[in-house]
Design a protein around this nucleic acid. Structure first.
Length: 421
RNA sequence: GGAAAGAUGACUGAGUGGCUGAAGGUGCUGGACUGCUAAUCCGGUGUACUGCUUACGCGGUACCGAGGGUUCGAAUCCCUCUCUUUCCGCCA
């Protein structure tokens, strides 16, 4: 969340930023609550100071054998006032916090201003569109024919959007996960973690999924748990309510399945593996100082790109504009793979710098060189998400006879298999 | 799922109603001293909110797992919850 002091001192800038985001936020209501809160605090604290003073004197009186009853009655009256103020204070603070939790992050100064995804500039691209020389087949046709997945049986088990991978398809999934984890841990310096796949409400609030996006998640009501929509959630919140004294940055990578209800997006690009309710993803998360977060964000994006380069897949990097950027992010690059049969770009990674927004929500701090505690900056990105990566491999590496060559980088992970036919 | 014990600052560990934001020790850190290593001595060492000052700082309030309650006053008494450990049960 945003620092209330920052909002207080930069109200106009916050309002402008919310407008650029197309976010409906009542900044003045927040400021009014903040003003009332501080008013109550100063009144109630003055009363408490007085009470503490008199209470101490009662202790003295009793020791000296004097009768304190008269003063007790007086202090009791103060206590009633204090209770009334405290009650209102709690209400105001809860109200204020709730409102703050619904305010998205400030876009970075460098985030391009724009309305929709059409305003996202392309930052760079790598590789070229493949020349197949024949009419490419869709991945859902290739996959069913080659026995890589069985979407009908997946739907039987859980409903559409819950893919069932089979045989070499299941192995390819596992191989890609392994390949990416090895790359990030062995060459990019990340430490692997394996996390819970369900998290509690506090954790979901820490990274920004709650309270606003409750409907996007699967829940386990009996236990008050939510299925994670991304490994970002457990990995970032690992250090919630901690003061880190390890050397920053801290780099973690994790494989997890991700669960998303995708409410409201039914019917849109949902065929095959394009948009599913459960998918595998390797995630990268960094905890940095404010001074290094921009640089680390750039590096993390390159780490994700490296995956695609090693797999020889044509991609481009776009930067999300203010109207398209995610709720908690301040700056964000999306990486998109070219899919020749789809004839379009598929998003496989989203690399975001959250600055101190998540750290403030999750209360993750560190000690700077002066010994002062500060909020860390958090950064994360997919490195990368599996289903669309699989789609891109299938579509880019397909042959006219319907077989699929495998990228050399994953041969070792496929037991030497070079081609699926 | 049942039973018992416990939860205090970076760590350890005192503290059963006011003199405790919290003893002692460890660690860290500033200094003194011993020609090195080590030791010794002195000092400092929580977080958050808030007001004044805004360079440094000073004051107030809150916080001893979380939330309630009793009381003039709670780390300390009561209730609820969470977690940890151990034992039993169940189980991949």
């Amino acid at each position: 969340m945003l620092d209330i002091k920052f909002i207080r001192e930069n109200a106009d800038a916050v309002k402008a930023a919310m407008k650029n985001r197309n976010a409906d936020v009542d900044v003045d209501a927040v400021l009014a609550l903040d003003a009332r809160r501080r008013e109550i605090v100063s009144e109630v604290e003055a009363l408490k100071a007085e009470r503490n003073k008199i209470s101490k004197s009662i202790g003295m009186m009793i020791k000296e054998g004097k009768d304190p009853e008269e003063i007790k009655a007086q202090v009791r009256e103060m206590g009633d006032k204090i209770t009334a103020f405290d009650t209102e204070l709690r209400e105001v603070e809860a109200d204020l916090r709730e409102k703050l939790l619904y305010i998205p992050n400030m876009p970075s100064d460098t985030t391009p201003v724009g309305q929709t995804e059409d305003d996202n500039p392309v930052i760079r691209s790598w590789g070229e569109k493949v020349e197949l020389g024949f009419e490419p087949q869709m991945h859902w046709d290739l996959g069913e024919k080659l026995g890589l997945f069985d979407l009908e049986r997946g739907a039987k088990l859980s409903g559409s959007g819950f893919p069932l991978f089979t045989g070499r398809g299941a192995k390819l999934e596992r191989a890609l996960i392994q390949f990416m984890l090895d790359l990030h841990t062995e060459e990019h310096g990340y430490t692997e973690v394996a996390t819970p796949f369900m998290c509690n409400e506090q954790t979901m609030t820490g990274t920004g999924q709650l309270p606003k996006f409750a409907e996007d998640m699967y829940t386990v009501p009996l236990d008050g748990l939510y299925l994670i929509p991304t490994a970002e959630v457990p990995v970032t919140n690992m250090y919630a309510n901690e003061i880190l004294d390890k050397d920053l940055p801290i780099l973690h990578t994790a494989y997890t399945p991700c669960f998303r209800r995708e409410a409201g997006s039914a019917g849109k690009d949902t065929r095959g593996l394009l948009r599913v309710h459960q998918f595998d993803k390797v995630e990268m998360v960094k905890f940095t100082t404010p001074e290094t977060s921009e640089e680390e964000h750039e590096k993390l994006t390159l780490d994700a790109e490296k995956v695609l380069q090693k797999l020889g897949l044509h991609y481009r990097v776009i930067e999300l504009c203010t109207g398209d950027i995610g709720f908690s992010a301040s700056k964000c690059y999306d990486i998109e793979l070219w899919a020749p049969a789809q004839d379009k770009w598929l998003e496989v990674s989203s690399c975001s710098n959250f600055k101190d927004y998540q750290a403030r929500r999750a209360n993750i701090r560190y000690r700077d060189e002066n010994g002062k505690t500060q909020f860390v900056h958090t950064i994360n990105g997919s490195g990368v998400a599996l289903p669309r990566l699989v789609i891109a491999i299938m579509e880019n590496y397909q042959n006219e006879d319907g077989s699929i060559d495998l990228p050399e980088a994953i041969w070792p992970y496929m037991g030497g298999l070079k081609k699926i036919d």
